[in-house]
Design a protein around this nucleic acid. Structure first.
Lengths: 249, 249
DNA sequence: ATATCTCTTATTTGTCCAACAAATAGGAAT
DNA sequence: ATTCCTATTTGTTGGACAAATAAGAGATAT
């Protein structure tokens, strides 16, 4: 009873000023949560809030935007999932920037099978990063890099499972890409990790990793050491295309 | 009163079987929401649910995992933000895969200024995609591609604002990357859009776009038409490095 | 009689409120 | 300076109602 009257009263007061709280000219036909997310985003940008600054408490957000606490919580949950705020009890919501880490989570849902198209696309991309950019790679690589790469490669020999081995395989190629010293490229590589690892494991046993993969890596490292451009491109391309025959569709 | 007794009763029953509901061996010290997300993820994978299949209703999830409805809603909100479910009133939550689209949202928070490091990284990446991959580009490009690129470039002349012009500039380069026919590369490019557009706008007016940028694009298109590898690489590299001098730090 | 359309109904999601538990920052007391 | 207490804030739950809508019931035309 009292609840009902309260509601109609509150909603009536809202009706007198519909869409007034919309910062941009959008239609406001979205859900209350989406609206609120938009509000908080403008609150961050127009308030000039930087990483480390705090957002108002849940209660203050309720009052400021005239909405319920669960709505505020769902909006904050979205922002948390985006990796732009970190909520700590009592101290409130602090602005962060962990969007890259969230992107990793995003693609870690690994239920779907890798299609032939995805395989071709991903390996084509990797070919671009790891084969075509050999000039940059040869220019920047140091003996320490090669030593580390060789160290990672030897771990392949002791891997106990194919899953374990594919993780090491991925680390080898990640370390190679890291030589280029470009953070954006490295981030992209890490984001793609789940798919790449899945491709690496395709039709491979732990023995395959310890024999075929290991020696291919070793040969690739030799071409890098000798700065043999032609051999590097050939070996790496062959290495990346190895899994191709398993898509006989 | 009744609320309190109910609660303690329920929680007591839970205490008898702590962590029993944990599918994996993780500590269960995470929040109820995070636990529930994990539960639903295993529900999807172990249930073999595919895109298009439906999840149980909120109420069923409450009963099955013995949790409150708002907790279920926050968990579903996370999954919605990830782009793995789409919830429609009455019909329930349907499994989708719009993670790539969500990744775009993720990086569309554009409050932070582009640092010199980010500029160098991003442009280095673009250089890899647009300069180093000229062989692939020249191999696949068609007269229709070039016609479309030229059409996009002419739109630069009629742009009314710098924001508008930078969007067209981005479309030009996106179209160029699309020629390679690799979806993964194109997706990465689109994800980076906010940063790239911000870089494009750096210290440029709408006049700059209509004069300098326009003619640089036109020259690049000519080198592609003539399959002039050397000229293409030089022109494109120069084009990408243009904004460099604005970082005099 | 069948098909199609409209209306009703029951179910489900969206939002809000109230209550309590858990964590903790900040102050009070020692 | 340390310890304890308290008030505030977030985390979780239950309940209520509004809004949307899928499914079924009923009406109408062919």
């Amino acid at each position: 009873m009292t609840d009902t009257s309260d509601r109609s009263l509150r909603e009536a007061s809202l009706e007198t000023d519909p869409e007034a709280r919309e910062p941009s000219g959008r239609t406001s036909r979205a859900s209350a949560v989406d609206d609120l997310v938009e509000h908080i985003r403008t609150l961050i940008s127009e308030g000039g809030l930087k990483v480390g600054d705090s957002l108002p408490t849940e209660k203050e957000l309720c009052e400021r935007f005239n909405t319920g606490r669960n709505t505020v919580r769902e909006a904050m949950r979205i922002l948390k999932t985006y990796g732009v705020v970190k909520v700590r009890p009592k101290v409130g919501a602090v602005i962060i920037d962990e969007r890259m880490a969230r992107a990793f989570d995003l693609f870690s849902f690994n239920t779907l099978e890798v299609s032939r198209e995805t395989f071709v696309d991903i390996q084509g991309f990797r070919s671009l990063l790891e084969v075509a950019s050999f000039e940059l790679l040869f220019d920047k690589v140091t003996p320490e890099d090669i030593a580390e790469l060789r160290q990672i490669n030897t771990e392949l020999l002791n891997a106990e499972t194919a899953v374990n081995a594919s993780e090491i395989d991925f680390r080898f190629h990640t370390r190679l890409v890291a030589v280029m010293g470009n953070k954006a490229i490295l981030d992209v590589y890490k984001i793609m990790k789940p798919v790449i690892v899945k491709i690496m494991m395709k039709a491979k046993t732990v023995q395959t990793f310890a024999t075929v993969t290991y020696s291919e890596h070793a040969e690739i490292l030799e071409t890098i050491e000798k700065r043999d451009r032609t051999a590097y491109q050939y070996k790496m391309k062959t290495h990346l295309d190895a899994g191709f025959r398993h898509f006989s569709d």
